[in-house]
Design a protein around this nucleic acid. Structure first.
Ligand code: FES
Ligand code: FES
Lengths: 144, 144
DNA sequence: TATTAATCGGACAAAAATGTCCTTTATTTA
DNA sequence: TAAATAAAGGACATTTTTGTCCGATTAATA
């Protein structure tokens, strides 16, 4: 469904949000440890998210990654997915035709669009804050 | 969502079903031409589908691929997807945790499972016959 | 029976995704 | 001001996916 990079990106962003709620700024090393992801690869993904203003980075000692409280409510998952995986999942044809076009649809078009629309709505309506608070309460996990 | 191999596999199976309805057996070359896919790669995928009894192959002159009329009604898309992509899309965690486990869920679990379940039901209820007849009527396309 | 047409299967090649390493840059603090 | 710390970024390595090539096998037909 999502690329590995995107999965790490979402998990990392949720972890950063969680720690930002506590006023803590976190390093790549801590993030990778807490979400069980490869450090250097995670660093690349965090750069992407930073460039796309999903998270905020600070260089130097006491530096690290954080998310403003207001951002973590306005930033929805679709922003992260688009930043990392692009928009193929939102606009691409389920059977791989060059474009998804309702005027010349593939055999699966109608049924596929239903699913894709649900997925899009879900991603557009889910904020980092919502996911982080579930974590905070101890109901959900970022690694196993 | 699906791998390229799986996309080609579904398109190929639908085309074979369509031609089998006309009593025609089709070659890899014709299939690849009609669904706009790489010939040799398509051949590999057809082998997989043949081994998994999704389609039937016949060697030698006048040979090719076909699907029994009864099979094309009982074979649902989930069989093709499982044969080619495995079952990660059915059982995997949306955020990439080692397993998806409702007892120790990732932050996205509930929302992701809803989508995944819809997708699974769609694939389990859609037959090749259904997709092929849409094509036959000229409402849908396998290439663009 | 020889030729031909088709899939099968294995080895290989190319491209994309995933992952690593190392140097540079910015910033804090001693 | 020097040392230490942390992200940024570029080059490189590995793995997976996608795609190609070619000889072996099977079966129809002249
Ligand atoms: S054309 Fe295939 S999903 Fe729309
Ligand atoms: S645990 Fe992540 S989707 Fe179920």
């Amino acid at each position: 469904m999502f690329s590995k990079a995107c999965e790490y990106g979402i998990r990392a962003a949720v972890y950063i949000a969680l720690q930002s709620l506590e006023g803590r700024r976190v390093s790549v090393n801590e993030i990778a440890e807490e979400i069980d992801s490869p450090i250097a690869f995670t660093a690349k993904i965090l750069q992407q998210l930073s460039r796309n203003n999903v998270i905020h980075s600070v260089k130097g000692p006491t530096g690290g990654f954080e998310i403003e409280r207001t951002d973590m409510e306005t930033v929805k998952l679709n922003l992260i997915v688009k930043a990392i995986d692009g928009d193929q999942i939102y606009v691409g044809c389920g059977l791989g035709l060059k474009e998804c076009d309702a005027d010349k649809p593939c055999p699966l078009h109608d049924k596929f669009v239903d699913i894709r629309t649900d997925l899009r709505h879900m991603l557009e309506s889910t904020s980092l804050y919502e996911l982080a608070t579930g974590l905070e309460v101890g109901l959900t996990y970022l690694k196993r």
